[in-house]
C-alpha cells in the first residue's frame, strides 16, 4: 500500500508540473494584462500537433522538440499581434467571447490540417523503458523526465521573476500596470513578450506529453479547465501560487481517483464505496477549489479581492 501511495504521489506530481507549465503562462497573462484567455488550452494542443508534425518530418524527437519551442513562440507572437492586442482594453466578457471563438477556430483548423484521427509521437530511445523503484514497482523513465523538466522550468521561472529586470517589470506590471507604463516601460512590448512566452510554455507542455498521450483535438479543453482551477486556487498573477496550485490539483486528482474508493471501503460496503468513490473522484478538484475560495476569496497567494 505504501508503494502504491508513493507511485501515485509521483503520478500526481507529474500531472502537477504539467499543469504548472500551462498555468504559468495563463496566470501571467491573467495577472499582468487582466486578460481571460480561454484559448490558452488550444495552444497546448497546437504544441502537441506541431511536435507530431516535426517528429514525422525530422524523425528525431530532440530535433522536433527543438523546432517546436521556437515555432510556438512565433505562433504566440502572431496571435498576439493579430487578435489579442485589440482585446486588452476590452471587458472580460468581450475577452471570453472572442477567445471562445478562437478556441472554435483553432480546434477546427487543427482538424482540417491534421485530420480528426489521433496522432502519436514516438518516444526517444534515451527515455523509453522504465526504472525499478521499490520491490516490483517500476516507473516509466519518460514520466520521471517530465517531472524533472517541469521542476527545472519552475525553478527557472522563479529565478527569472525574482532575480531579473524583466521579472521585476512583470511583478510591477501585475500589481500596478499604469505605474509601470508611466515609468516609461514599453508596455505593448512587455505584453507581447509575456504572451508569446506563455504560448511557448503551453506548447512545450503539449510537445512533451505527446509521446505518452495521443495527440487529439480534445486535449486542450480538459486541460484548460484544470489550468483555470489551478490559477484560481493559487491566486491570479502569482507564479508561486500557480506552482502550489498545480501540485495540489495534480496530487488531489490522482490520489482521489485511486484511493477514494479504498478509503471509503473502510467505512461502508464495497459496492456502495465503489459507486460513491467514482462519483466523488472527479468532483474532488472542484470541491477543493470551492472550499479554498470560500476560505480565501482571492486564492491561496492572491493579493487582492479586487
Amino acid at each position: 500500500m505504501t508503494n502504491l501511495f508513493l507511485l501515485q504521489l509521483l503520478n500526481g506530481a507529474q500531472l502537477g508540473v504539467l499543469l504548472f507549465l500551462i498555468a504559468a503562462g495563463l496566470t501571467l497573462i491573467f495577472g499582468i494584462m487582466d486578460f481571460i484567455n480561454l484559448a490558452h488550452g488550444v495552444l497546448y494542443m497546437v504544441g502537441a500537433y506541431v511536435m507530431a508534425s516535426f517528429a514525422m518530418l525530422t524523425g528525431s524527437f530532440w530535433l522536433a522538440l527543438g523546432l517546436t519551442v521556437p515555432a510556438m513562440l512565433i505562433c504566440g507572437l502572431l496571435l498576439e499581434f493579430t487578435v489579442f492586442r485589440a482585446l486588452y482594453a476590452r471587458s472580460h466578457l468581450d475577452q471570453v467571447l472572442a477567445t471562445f471563438g478562437l478556441v472554435l477556430v483553432i480546434s477546427e483548423g487543427v482538424k482540417i490540417l491534421w485530420g480528426s484521427a489521433p496522432l502519436t509521437v514516438p518516444m526517444p530511445d534515451l527515455l523509453s523503458g522504465s526504472v525499478g523503484l521499490i520491490g516490483p514497482l517500476k516507473y516509466p523513465v519518460y514520466r520521471l523526465a517530465i517531472l524533472v523538466v517541469g521542476l527545472a522550468s519552475a525553478l527557472g521561472l522563479y529565478v527569472l521573476i525574482t532575480q531579473t529586470r524583466i521579472g521585476m517589470l512583470l511583478r510591477a506590471g501585475a500589481s500596478n500596470r499604469e505605474m509601470v507604463s508611466a515609468l516609461g516601460v514599453n508596455v505593448g512590448r512587455l505584453f507581447a513578450m509575456v504572451f508569446a512566452f506563455g504560448a511557448m510554455l503551453a506548447g512545450f507542455a503539449g510537445a512533451i506529453v505527446a509521446p505518452i498521450l495521443s495527440v487529439d483535438t480534445g486535449m486542450g479543453e480538459s486541460v484548460l479547465i484544470l489550468a483555470f482551477v489551478v490559477i484560481v486556487i493559487g491566486g491570479i498573477g502569482s507564479i508561486r501560487g500557480a506552482f502550489m496550485g498545480a501540485l495540489l490539483v495534480g496530487v488531489v486528482d490522482t490520489m482521489g481517483r485511486s484511493f477514494g474508493p479504498i478509503v471509503l471501503r473502510m467505512i461502508m460496503e464495497p459496492a456502495a464505496a465503489g459507486q460513491l468513490g467514482r462519483t466523488l473522484a472527479p468532483m474532488l478538484v472542484y470541491i477543493l477549489m470551492a472550499a479554498i475560495l470560500f476560505a480565501r476569496p482571492a486564492g491561496l497567494f492572491g493579493r487582492r479581492a479586487e
Partner: peptide
Amino acid sequence: TRGVYFIMITLAFSQM
C-alpha cells in the same frame, strides 16, 4: 468572490 474568481467558482459548482 468578485470578478474572475466569481466566473471560476460558478464554473466549479456547475462542474460538480
